[in-house]
Design a protein around this nucleic acid. Structure first.
Lengths: 117, 117
DNA sequence: TTGATATTTCCAGAAACATGGAATCATTAT
DNA sequence: ATAATGATTCCATGTTTCTGGAAATATCAA
């Protein structure tokens, strides 16, 4: 379960243009991940600046990293992303209906308590 | 649809301990909302500091406000919350399965394309 | 109008954050 | 060992954010 403090850290990690771009790129890249240099090349970010932001994302748990030869491969941490969404969703609507749009949507938590056929 | 810039604003609004507390309180308070003073009393936040954070939440669209006599009533904006979650979920897993946990969970977008029985 | 209550704005100081040049560290190839 | 490449750290600078005291604004009551 995600604590409020952890949620603030995760939200803060994503609440920055460069980091959100990086994270989304890693999300699209899939579990295999991307080398830091590839991320920088695709987004046009200087290596030191990118390193700074990757570190922030990693410290918040939003990405993982592994050394692979000369490269450091970063990958989105889908589990933490999922936990963050669950945290936000848990506290939305509280079982009651807030809005039609939201009403027809079960929260992740609620869905987790069900089995999907 | 939420743009990346809007998402950054929404995330930044929530990525602060006091504001996340305030927002969650408003979420639990429901669509009726709460007067600024009630929020401050329940969370022990000075009026001017609270006003600063409520303004930030409102500018990011996370809460709405309406004047009611001497009071200003704030309420969570569930629609924007929902959009933010949709934005984050849309870019997670991209139809592919990232993790068992996430795999068994349909994203909001995916659910929106279905009708719920 | 005068007074009380609710909220916001103004302001200044402190702290945290973002950026990129230069130097450093790590790994591989020759 | 030397060189080359990929990535990180160090550092200085500029910017933004957070905080709360004091003053201002808004609404209602007497």
């Amino acid at each position: 379960m995600m604590t409020p403090a952890t949620a603030v850290d995760a939200l803060a990690a994503l609440a920055q243009e460069t980091r959100l771009k990086v994270f989304r790129l890693l999300v699209t890249a899939g579990p295999t991940g991307l080398a830091a240099g590839d991320v920088g090349a695709q987004l046009g970010i200087p290596a030191n600046t990118l390193s700074f932001h990757l570190k922030a994302l990693a410290q918040a748990g939003m990405v993982t990293s592994r050394q692979e030869g000369r490269f450091v491969i970063y990958a989105a941490n889908y589990a933490v992303m999922d936990d963050l969404i669950a945290f936000l969703t848990d506290n939305c609507c509280q079982g009651a209906a807030c809005l039609p749009q939201t009403q027809q949507v079960a929260t992740i938590t609620k869905r987790r308590t069900r089995s999907l056929a």
